[in-house]
């Protein structure tokens, strides 16, 4: 059974536009019917550019957002509909590491307090041995050296390791990694990425890895889901998706990744205003393959190859398999 099963997750934000907000509420749909599953011990990468809804997905999975629909099943229990006590238990098993370690650590707290905070909140104050253990796990040794430091006394990489130590101190099952290396120098980044791998081996963690960097996704993830404007346009095993992208957006993303060796596909225009998403396929205004139908119908999700799903009417005109053009919808 998968550890985390997300079904038709939709996240909206109320938008206040001047006086009109007074009369009617408008909503920006940041995540639109996204589904995926994450097996125990596995890693799923949510890939996409900023504003595509990947961070909102992560926060919604933790039950931290309002205006959320769909189901988030953690070990079969719906996080969005849990009672207070059950949710508390869930919070012990699911933790998050944020992008910016300068923002995610309270500047007035020492490392000891930051890493001990999960223990304090979950009334396990007695287990201070875990504190040092967690710091060592996160690669901060000797732990005694770091315990009484304030965040401003640490480097960016060390701060992120403190955030990671705080995230694993309760020995969780699921870790949401929200762009955890995007704010770090390249030299530090590699160390942190390796740390995630080691932690997964040692603690059996499952990662929901949110990133805009395909190379990072390739390094860490077993599976990827590519998001565009709140929609998961392509999903599948990492190797499969990255070597045989089916969706034109994935192709374009891959082509501009450094060292891809592909011909660069520069997309026309910008990501549309999410308040007024284009009709039909959300990608059609920028899509090199778009035809009449793309602006009228929403493409359904189809399984183009085993485990490889895509939302596009005209997949794989490439060298892979000519018969795949216009595959039959699976629903």
């Amino acid at each position: 059974m998968s550890l985390l099963e997300v079904r038709e997750l939709t996240v909206a934000y109320p938008v206040a536009v001047g006086l009109s907000a007074f009369f009617s509420r408008r909503y920006l749909v940041a995540v639109d019917h996204v589904s995926f599953s994450l097996p125990e011990g596995g890693t799923l990468a949510l890939v996409g550019e900023s504003g595509c809804g990947k961070s909102s997905t992560g926060l919604a999975v933790l039950g931290l957002l309002e205006h959320v629909e769909g189901e988030v099943l953690f070990r079969g229990r719906d996080v969005l509909r849990m009672r207070e006590k059950e949710r508390r238990e869930f919070r012990r098993h699911a933790q998050i590491v944020f992008q910016d370690p300068y923002e995610s650590l309270n500047p007035k707290m020492r490392v000891r307090t930051i890493v001990g905070e999960p223990l304090a909140i979950h009334r396990r104050r007695g287990e201070t041995g875990r504190l040092k253990e967690a710091l060592e796990l996160a690669g901060l040794s000797p732990p005694e050296y770091f315990l009484d430091k304030y965040p401003h006394e640490l480097s960016g990489g060390e701060r992120q390791r403190v955030a990671i130590a705080a995230a694993v101190v309760l020995q969780p099952k699921l870790l949401i990694l929200d762009e955890p290396v995007s704010n770090l120098d390249v030299s530090i980044k590699a160390g942190i990425m390796n740390l995630f791998r080691d932690l997964q081996d040692q603690l059996g963690l499952s990662y929901l890895f949110i990133t805009h960097d395909l190379a990072d996704a390739f390094f860490l993830a077993d599976e990827v889901a590519v998001m565009y404007l709140g929609v998961a346009v392509e999903k599948g095993e990492t190797d499969e998706v990255l070597s045989h992208p089916l969706h034109p957006y994935t192709e374009a993303l891959l082509s501009v990744a450094p060292g891809s060796g592909r011909e660069k596909l520069i997309l026309a225009g910008d990501v549309p205003d999410p308040l007024h998403p284009p009709p039909g396929c959300r990608f059609h205004p920028r899509c090199p393959r778009a035809r009449g139908r793309c602006s009228e119908e929403v493409p359904p999700e189809v399984e183009a190859a085993p485990g490889h799903r895509v939302r596009c009417f005209y997949v794989s005109r490439g060298e892979r398999d000519p018969h795949l053009e216009e595959p039959k919808p699976i629903h």
Binding site: L59, R91, Q95, I96, N106, K108, M109, E117, I121, H122
Partner: peptide
């Protein structure tokens, strides 16, 4: 609105804990 408050909420901290430990010192 700071991320460390969001992090505390993700940890399961209640409003009074957050006000006491995160907001007040700041």
């Amino acid at each position: 609105e700071r991320v460390f408050v969001l992090r505390a909420r993700a940890l399961g901290a209640g409003p009074f804990y957050i006000m006491r430990r995160h907001i007040l010192p700041n």
